[in-house]
Design a protein around this nucleic acid. Sequence first.
DNA 1: CGACACATTGACCAGACTCAAAGCTAGTGG
DNA 2: CCACTAGCTTTGAGTCTGGTCAATGTGTCG
Lengths: 248, 248
Amino acid sequence: MHPVPDQSALGMLIRKLESVAALTDEERRAIKSLPVRIQNLDARQDIVHDGDQPTHCCLILDGWACRYKMLSEGKRQILSFHVPGDVLDLQSLHIPTMDHSLATLTKAVVAFIPHESLRELTARHPGLAAAFWRDTLIDAAVFREWLISMGRRSAFEHVAHLFCELYLKLHAVGLAGDHRCPMPLTQTDIADALGLTPVHINRVLQEMRGRTLITLRSRMLVIEAWDELLRVSEFNPTYLQLEKRAAA
Amino acid sequence: MHPVPDQSALGMLIRKLESVAALTDEERRAIKSLPVRIQNLDARQDIVHDGDQPTHCCLILDGWACRYKMLSEGKRQILSFHVPGDVLDLQSLHIPTMDHSLATLTKAVVAFIPHESLRELTARHPGLAAAFWRDTLIDAAVFREWLISMGRRSAFEHVAHLFCELYLKLHAVGLAGDHRCPMPLTQTDIADALGLTPVHINRVLQEMRGRTLITLRSRMLVIEAWDELLRVSEFNPTYLQLEKRAAA
DNA sequence: CGACACATTGACCAGACTCAAAGCTAGTGG
DNA sequence: CCACTAGCTTTGAGTCTGGTCAATGTGTCG
């Protein structure tokens, strides 16, 4: 893991927002003047905890993170996965108290940006406010797609759908290609995201291997039959909004 | 159903936003000058369809609506329920193409507000942009809570949780009280929202009646044991953000 | 009054869960 | 460089929640 200078962190933020909406030079300059604090985190470390009132938003520069909530009897529900370029916790800008937690899944490098600065930035630059807003709308679209998977897809279809989603998210930030990507999730993580048990995830993965859809070992996922994976999970990438940007 | 003049529609929008964030007089005036088109809709009528590119947002003045997506083999997943005061389709402001549909559940009166006017309004009034943004963040919090229910709650707990949520949402807009509220949903609607079958919903409702938790007939829900309902569903109303407003 | 949508019931089935026991594997320290 | 360990994965047997199919009630509205 390399040291990450502030400029590169803000560059990542600019690239992220440009993938979401067109920016003006002035807006780019405004972002470049944001204060950031870079931090290295271990794997499986909380970034923000349920009940906290965060004072910073957090941009992932390297590594994976997730949003989760603990319930009674040790039950955990993972609500989303996040990869480099994702801005976590934008909702804390407008909803002070966290109703869930954020944690790293792998070793990670994150940049913290004060709420105060972001509030000022968005108040002064309506175009940036719209861009951040759009980013949270895309997040919501992903939540909706997960709801659909939870409600109406079988375990097999659901796992397939998740793999399609993660591959495309990683591909969009240059971390995947040629139908292969890193996959640091344990079977327990996948189970907690999909509302299933690790044992059942294991069986589903066996079946996916048996049908030569995927290879998954040493934290590396290879999708052997992309079209088939799309087909069985009825995956339609539109909700990820990876291509189109909002009109300027 | 009474005729609804434009002013009362915008009054409803102002009340809604004031439940979300504090507004200034100027912001209230700006809202009052928005153009609106009021429309009466039948029950079970699409408002916006999957794939559409809407040009208006839509505010529910009377009646219930839902967000849903149709899948293969006639499967339907309902993604959210909406009651008077809710602004649907804010995401279409920044994400042009719908990835799901919106429909009425009952006869309804809705107000349509042009995107154009809302974009101008939010560009000119950062405080209103923040209020709308916050509203969509609360929507996202509800999606997350539904994910938790889908993933880690039993059918019984899930139904109980939904009833708590709907009761409080209706209570917040003065349409429920004394632990009773209208409940126009069919058992099939509930099933499609919760990812279950109508038959199973029926059995769960039988059990809830047997345990004297609820009475449900003629489209009226009476919660006979509120505390118990909260307890079994581990319901925590925080995510609905009904009390607190964002600081001005 | 009739029709249609909605609710209810029963019998049987299946996908996913539980519990428990082994196997692996990557990282650690000696 | 190897042995140890902790965490992860795999497997099996039995169970249970929720699904399926199909029939029968029960409103409610024109």
